[in-house]
């Protein structure tokens, strides 16, 4: 038997223990998100999925659904907050879409389109982050990292390899790989790993495949992320 809660006034069924995010997804309803992925444990770090549940702000990806709960999702207030969070992510890293091979298939970019982000607004941090091209099959461009830790989770939980981790703290937090040399080539990472294809942005890229699908015909070129995600 399943209960229901209200998402923007419409009933969404859920089973006991299901999060608001998972239930909404199962019902084909889109709650903007970046660090959440149905295959992995919820993380709750990007905060894009912040909703208002019975009047209280909470991340939909970690919030257990309760019967009769009223959840606001696509309100002007919440979408404004989401746009600001996206702007924060854009100025924190170096996100130059014109020169990124993930353009059109990037969740950060597609979510920003969906939320009509016209400008990064804040003053850019322009951090200095090196690229790691040491691996024969994979490229790491840390400039685009949004610290969602999907690669950390995928490598640990799906691949059993623990190739990635986060170090540093605060604005200096950053992704590292599992070798004292700091090079991806010296880790157990392989192209077939789940972690190799899970990056929502353009950090982990397979070499030599960047433009197999031309720009303009990619996942989020064809459809807005809200519609594309819920299929």
């Amino acid at each position: 038997m399943s209960d229901v809660f209200l998402l923007d006034g419409e009933q969404v069924p859920f089973t006991v223990g299901q999060t608001v995010m998972a239930a909404a997804r199962a019902a084909g309803r889109y709650i903007p998100h970046l660090c959440w992925h149905p295959e992995f444990q919820p993380h709750g770090s990007c905060r894009l999925c912040t909703v208002k549940a019975d009047g209280h702000f909470a991340a939909a990806c970690t919030l257990a659904a309760r019967p009769g709960m009223t959840v606001d999702n696509r309100t002007a207030e919440l979408d404004d907050q989401r746009r600001t969070l996206l702007q924060m992510l854009f100025v924190e890293g170096n996100h130059f879409c014109p020169s990124c091979e993930k353009s059109g298939a990037c969740k950060l970019q597609a979510t920003a389109y969906e939320l009509k982000m016209m400008t990064p607004h804040f003053d850019h941090f322009f951090p200095d982050r090196a690229v790691d091209a040491s691996h024969p099959d994979l490229l790491l461009d840390f400039n685009r990292c949004i610290l969602c830790e999907l690669c950390v989770r995928a490598s640990r939980d799906a691949d059993g390899k623990n190739v990635f981790a986060i170090t540093g703290r605060g604005i200096k937090s950053h992704l590292i790989v599992n070798s004292p040399s700091g090079r991806l080539a010296d880790t157990a990472m392989s192209l077939a790993d789940r972690a190799a294809s899970v990056c929502p942005v353009g950090v982990i890229l397979a070499k030599g495949r960047g433009f197999v699908i031309p720009i303009g015909e990619r996942r989020y070129d064809r459809q807005q992320i809200g519609a594309a995600e819920e299929q």
Binding site: G44, L85, M88, E92, F122, R169, G170, I171
Partner: peptide, 16 residues
């Protein structure tokens, strides 16, 4: 200085 850096609003917000 003390933000753990886990979530976007605090990591970037405290720096801004």
């Amino acid at each position: 200085h003390e933000s753990c850096g886990f979530c976007t609003p605090c990591r970037v917000g405290t720096a801004l």
